[in-house]
Nucleic acid binder design. Structure first.
Lengths: 171, 171
DNA sequence: GAGCAATATTTGAAATGTCAAAGGTTTGGG
DNA sequence: CCCAAACCTTTGACATTTCAAATATTGCTC
């Protein structure tokens, strides 16, 4: 009874036998969600095995790598889509590991700026290269034209969702 | 205004500026991830506000709703893509709330089967209807043809990823 | 049947996640 | 000046998440 893996993949198909169904949006969402989970888990596993890092840590460091002067925690929170309280703990742990530095600027003592250390930059550099390769590998069977198309169309989805949030603002 | 609302920011923009045609897969991944996060957060917020439920609880109940006789915890784990240990806690809390029932069948005492209670079925029914509507709303600006196309092409991505996992499984 | 591998779930430690409330720090109007 | 509003981060309570190790039960082999 090892129908385990196939069950994961075919979940959505069971919902509606016909493509004609309503609930198209629901089915798209379920497929997006399961696919994203699948990729996330794979990346998580490799980050852990090869670098001893977690995915949220990688995401956070990616932002800091782009802004060498560092970022305020609130800005980090927005960019990583992680709550403020969560960022506090993440940065705390990264600081303990010597990958990130926390500084309070003289101008405004409410603010905390996080910044990659040299050690952090070196580590992230290696992780980023590997990370990019993993993604290329995982999507190797997908036609590059399709990849481009997906990138564009998912952008449309994101845009639509952004305009229909309940609590919401937009850029 | 709560802090979580401000998260409409793009994860991809940070990577995007410097690249041309390369790293297509990376950019697709970042966009998929941020879009999924955006939708998840919106659904989470609404589930919480309108039903006092969490997204993982909703996911778990969705599986049980489909299988009225109930499911073994291991099967639930596979279908929800959640680890075994996690399922234990989720079911525990749902049982506390009277939404789910846990039974050990006579045949095999290693097994625990989870099953929706009448209260659970009623609640899920309402949540599912709302949930479907939320998704239609959020994707309202996307052409249905594009939605179908996305559903198909993301399937291709999922398939490719499945074939390139490190911790191998396959049928 | 005694022992052992396989199966199914639970447990425990550590990290991540949300939300709400509380801490400090500016800033601006009176 | 002063005080209230606005801003930024931290804290605390709780839920979810993963992994690995521990439990418990069954099935198989000899």
């Amino acid at each position: 009874m090892t129908e385990s893996e196939s069950a994961t993949v075919d979940l959505e198909i069971i919902v509606q036998g016909t493509q004609e169904g309503k609930k198209l949006e629901l089915r798209l969402w379920l497929r997006m969600l399961s696919t994203t989970k699948l990729i996330s888990q794979e990346i998580r596993r490799r980050l852990r095995n090869e670098f001893g890092a977690t995915l949220p840590q990688f995401d956070l460091m990616a932002q800091l790598y782009r802004e060498r002067e560092g970022l305020r925690l609130g800005e980090l929170s927005k960019r990583t889509m992680v709550t403020n309280g969560n960022v506090t703990g993440l940065v705390e742990r990264l600081e303990t590991d010597g990958l990130v530095l926390r500084v309070t600027p003289d101008g405004d003592r409410r603010v905390t700026v996080a910044k990659l250390t040299a050690k952090g930059e070196t580590l992230f550099s290696a992780m980023a290269a590997a990370h990019e390769g993993w993604l290329r590998d995982m999507m190797a069977d997908v036609d590059p034209a399709i990849v481009s198309e997906l990138w564009r169309d998912i952008g449309a989805v994101k845009s639509s969702v952004s305009n229909h949030l309940s609590g919401a603002d937009f850029d």
